[in-house]
Amino acid sequence: MDDALARAGYRDVAPEEGGGAARGWWDANAEEYLAEHGDFLGPDDFVWCPEGLREQDAHLLGDVRGATVLEVGAGAAQCSRWLAAAGARAVATDVSGGMLAAGAAYDARRGSSTPMVQADARHLPFADTSFDVAFTAFGALPFVPDAGRVHAEVARVLRPGGRWVFAVTHPVRWAFPDDPGTGGLTAARSYFDRRPYVEEAADGRVLYAEYHRTLGDHVRELTGAGFVLDDLVEPPWPAGHERVWGGWGPVRGALLPGTAVFVTRRAG
Rank of each mutant, 00 (worst) to 15 (best):
A6F: 10
G9W: 01
A14G: 12
P15K: 09
G20K: 02
W25Y: 15
W25R: 00
D27C: 04
E36M: 12
L41V: 04
V47W: 03
V47R: 01
G52D: 08
G62P: 10
G66W: 00
T68L: 14
V69Q: 07
V72W: 00
A77K: 00
A84G: 14
A92S: 11
A92C: 03
A92R: 00
S96D: 06
A102E: 01
A104Y: 01
A105Q: 06
D107I: 05
A108G: 10
M116P: 02
D120A: 05
H123Q: 13
D132A: 08
A134P: 05
F138T: 07
P142L: 02
V144Y: 04
G148Y: 07
R149Q: 14
A155W: 00
W164C: 14
A167S: 12
R173Q: 14
W174M: 08
D179P: 06
G181S: 08
R189N: 13
R195K: 10
A201P: 06
R205A: 13
Y211K: 04
Y211S: 10
H212W: 09
R213H: 12
D217W: 04
R220S: 15
G224K: 13
L229R: 09
L229S: 12
D230L: 11
D230K: 12
V233T: 12
E234P: 05
E234F: 04
P235R: 05
P235D: 15
P235E: 10
P238C: 08
G240L: 10
R252N: 06
A254F: 13
P257V: 12
T259G: 08
R265T: 14
